[in-house]
Computed example of a mutant assay.
Amino acid sequence: MTTHKQNSRFKTLSAWVLQFLLALCLTYGGIMKLITPIDQLALMWPWVAQVPNLVVWGTALLDLLGAIGIILPSLLNIKPYFSRWAAYGILGLMLSAIVFHLVRGETEVLGFNIFMIVLTLILLRLWKAD
């Protein structure tokens, strides 16, 4: 019985750590895209200088919505399944980013998107185990 309880606590803690890490990464990206001038942002992410500002702001909004969605419903325990929906949204966003970068020949930047996908899939697996 104790082992099951410890295992459950470990899964819960692991899920929260992953949720926080995903939210932190998405919040950072979203805020950077919103507050940093495009010419400075292009030094870090060259693609932002080559797409309309609306695309940059749109991805910033999606990043921030993903960050909010992965944390708040679970934290407030109000429709916590919305966090799962946010996780699927994050998967979609990261897969779209991979396609975007592949089309542009930017394979060197795919690591972050793959990292985010792996974290999200692990989180979904932890939730499924509950």
Score class of each variant (00 low, 15 high):
M1T: 13
M1V: 12
M1Q: 08
T2Y: 04
T2W: 03
T3I: 15
T3N: 14
H4K: 13
H4N: 14
H4Y: 09
Q6C: 03
N7G: 04
N7I: 09
S8G: 04
R9P: 00
L13E: 13
L13A: 15
W16A: 13
F20S: 15
F20R: 09
F20E: 05
L21W: 10
L22P: 06
L22F: 04
A23N: 12
A23M: 10
A23W: 06
A23V: 10
L24K: 07
C25E: 08
L26H: 13
Y28C: 08
G30R: 04
I31D: 11
M32Y: 02
I35C: 05
T36Y: 03
I38D: 07
D39G: 01
Q40T: 01
Q40K: 08
Q40Y: 04
Q40A: 09
L43K: 12
M44R: 14
M44L: 14
W45Q: 12
V48T: 15
A49N: 09
A49K: 08
V51I: 09
V51C: 00
P52Y: 02
N53K: 06
L54G: 08
V55S: 02
V56S: 07
V56P: 00
G58Q: 02
G58I: 02
A60V: 00
L61Y: 01
L62A: 14
L62P: 01
G66I: 07
G66V: 12
G69S: 06
I70P: 07
I70F: 07
L72M: 15
L72G: 08
P73W: 02
S74E: 06
S74H: 08
S74N: 12
L75T: 06
L76Y: 13
L76I: 13
L76S: 12
N77H: 14
I78R: 13
I78V: 15
K79L: 09
K79M: 05
P80R: 11
F82Y: 10
S83C: 11
A87T: 04
G89C: 11
I90R: 05
G92T: 06
G92F: 03
L93Q: 15
M94Y: 01
M94H: 04
L95C: 11
L95W: 03
S96W: 05
A97C: 12
V99P: 01
F100V: 07
V103H: 02
V103T: 06
R104D: 10
R104K: 10
G105Q: 09
G105T: 12
G105K: 07
E106W: 05
E106S: 09
V109C: 07
G111N: 12
N113A: 15
I117T: 04
I117L: 15
L121V: 15
L121I: 15
R125N: 03
K128C: 02
K128P: 00
A129E: 03
